[in-house]
Design a protein around this nucleic acid. Structure first.
Length: 280
DNA sequence: ATGGCCGCGCGTCGCGGA
């Protein structure tokens, strides 16, 4: 059976992490499990500085919404996986969109495109770098909630147009206490507070499914670990990177996993990639 | 021990990250 693998990864600077990205993509291909689409977050550079050529040499087309120093998101698609009619750079990403329509924002946090892979129906792929929020009650937290509010309306409209939709990225929300290494310590804090979790649950009420929880997972599985305090070695992490899928994709989902391998490499991103496997 | 780490920028500390 044909399967496709779709991933998300907050790379925390594409300039610094390009070798890791290329190594990881190569490693997946070598296992005969190539990543067909990947959403990247926290590029921390403008589009003119994005390494399009190196990534294309590795077999991927990219589209980018970049910003100096902060934020920035991209979608990569494996050229070989593209359908015959969308094999060119110009047709690989259809209905390409940067930012949430109608939401004025300097910060580059969202990018979306429709992608036609070989032998399967088109996928609407939305990649988001949700605001961090800094601290509950801060200005940045208000911005986070406004952004989440705008995202809800956008998603509602997108779901009406696209039955096969994925929303991937760094949500900066740990939806449940099982997604938190020490829930008692984190109670009510940024990333975990009810105010932001409410939006995650609203997305689920809209029909979106947290694909990671469709499958058995090891307890205390996380996607981010603080650089400080030996977070990774102590497994003091949070699960804040997610792949939500629309109902039409639920029966097609075969697996969802976090790959901690790149987090063990020298000079890693603080986030690990999350991968969903979709049956044809 | 509530800190400790990173990446970035006209930088050699402050900010943002989560």
């Amino acid at each position: 059976m044909n399967q496709y693998r779709i991933a998300t990864w907050n790379v925390n600077s594409i300039k610094v992490r390009l070798p890791h990205l290329l190594q990881w993509l190569e490693q997946q291909s070598a296992k005969n499990q190539p990543i067909d689409i990947i959403g990247l977050q926290e590029l921390k550079l403008t589009e003119d500085k994005f390494p399009f050529d190196e990534i294309e040499k590795a077999g991927y087309y990219s589209i980018v919404s970049g910003q100096k120093t902060y934020n920035g998101v991209a979608i990569l698609v494996r050229k070989e996986a593209l359908s015959l009619v969308t094999q060119d750079r110009e047709t690989a990403f259809l209905d390409f969109q940067k930012n949430i329509p109608g939401f004025e924002d300097e910060q580059q946090r969202l990018i979306a495109a429709t992608i036609h892979l070989k032998n399967i129906q088109p996928l609407r792929f939305i990649c988001g770098y949700f605001p961090n929020g800094q601290a509950v009650g801060s200005d940045k937290f208000s911005y986070k909630l406004k952004w989440l509010e705008a995202l809800q309306s956008y998603l509602h409209a997108q779901l009406l147009q696209h039955s096969r939709l994925l929303l991937v990225g760094d949500y900066n929300i740990a939806p449940k206490d099982e997604d938190v290494h020490d829930p008692a310590k984190w109670i009510g804090q940024n990333l975990v507070s009810d105010d932001e979790r409410k939006y995650f649950f609203q997305m689920e009420e809209m029909g979106l499914i947290d694909s990671y929880r469709l499958f058995d997972q090891i307890p205390k599985s996380f996607s981010w670990w603080d650089y400080r305090m030996m977070g990774f070695r102590r497994n003091a992490g949070l699960r804040i990177d997610h792949i939500l899928i629309s109902p039409a994709l639920k029966e097609k989902a075969a697996l969802c996993a976090i790959d901690k391998t790149p987090r063990t490499w020298e000079q890693p991103s603080d986030h690990a990639p999350v991968i969903i496997t979709i049956n044809q």
